[in-house]
Nucleic acid binder design. Structure first.
Lengths: 151, 151
DNA sequence: TCGAATCGTAACAATAATAGTTACATGAAA
DNA sequence: TTTCATGTAACTATTATTGTTACGATTCGA
């Protein structure tokens, strides 16, 4: 199966929206994300329901971020997407009759539960303004490289 | 995408093989795992290369576990499978030119790296004899339930 | 009021990863 | 030498994600 890249995509979109202080259309965001405007609408729908963004139709419409970047964590965004499954690995059978398989599932679940909790906690520690600050650092570094690069 | 259930499946297989002190054929294992003997061979091939099991052809052939359950961790088995990707979520683009996307990828990678390390460490803490002991506990509990259950 | 811009959404196609199946070759034991 | 069993390649089936097409609904501005 393909990997789920929705979290990555909407984080990218939110940061572009925050940079620009006017609504961005689905077409514009699709160009940023190298995807399709329908995919943008479909994915952003969850964020709208969660109150992270608002959308407007017609002339001058588009997507606007509703909250300050410092008040949104990656976990908020993950939740707004409906908390998709994080792990690629899973059980062969969910409710096995075989007691051996039950014991295996239980051992795997224990390990995965801890890892999932840690990941979600980490997502909750990162607000989007932190990522925006990292972007600015990278932009400065690139400028510096361009102006001193002799290749 | 379908979930990867190979780790679950081979753990299940290894425990059945350990219970039985004779080689088990791919057909027998396939019946235990509700799958196909070719899938069993394909998946077990990695464990054979890692030295966890051996296989024999012809009459009396089949699969035998090579090491004591107490010397094999879930992590060993995971490694023998080629350390498949653990996460369902990922980046939209691996090497983006967009600095915003680079910053997003970096933030996600940080969180996922920690979670992956924890999961792999947890897998390394569980030896297969621990799972076998849990199986025995479950078997006793089921017997007890059967003998006292009045429904 | 009309028309262009824009989102909302359903339905369908494309892509990719896993798992299952068929077919046949290889090797070992009775 | 026949039967049992693995080894493996090639193909199919299944499933989740992503992309596309089509059309309806709403909003703004001329």
């Amino acid at each position: 199966m393909k990997k789920n890249s929705r979290l990555s995509a909407v984080l990218h979109a939110l940061l572009h929206m925050a940079e620009r202080h006017a609504p961005m259309t689905s077409d514009e965001l699709a160009a940023c994300l190298s995807t399709n405007p329908v995919v943008v609408r479909r994915t952003m729908a969850g964020l709208r329901e969660a109150g992270l963004v608002s959308s407007g139709r017609g002339h001058g419409g588009g997507w606007t971020i509703s909250r300050d970047l410092s008040t949104i964590t990656m976990r908020d965004v993950y939740s707004a997407l409906g908390e998709p499954m994080l792990f690629q690995i899973g059980h062969a059978e969910e409710m096995p009759g075989c007691l051996v398989e039950q014991a295996v599932n239980h051992a795997l679940d224990d390990a995965m539960r801890d890892a999932e909790a840690l990941l979600v906690a980490r997502l909750g520690e990162v607000t989007l303004d932190i990522i925006a600050a990292d972007f600015i650092t990278r932009a400065k570094a690139r400028k510096l490289t361009l102006s001193t690069d002799t290749t």
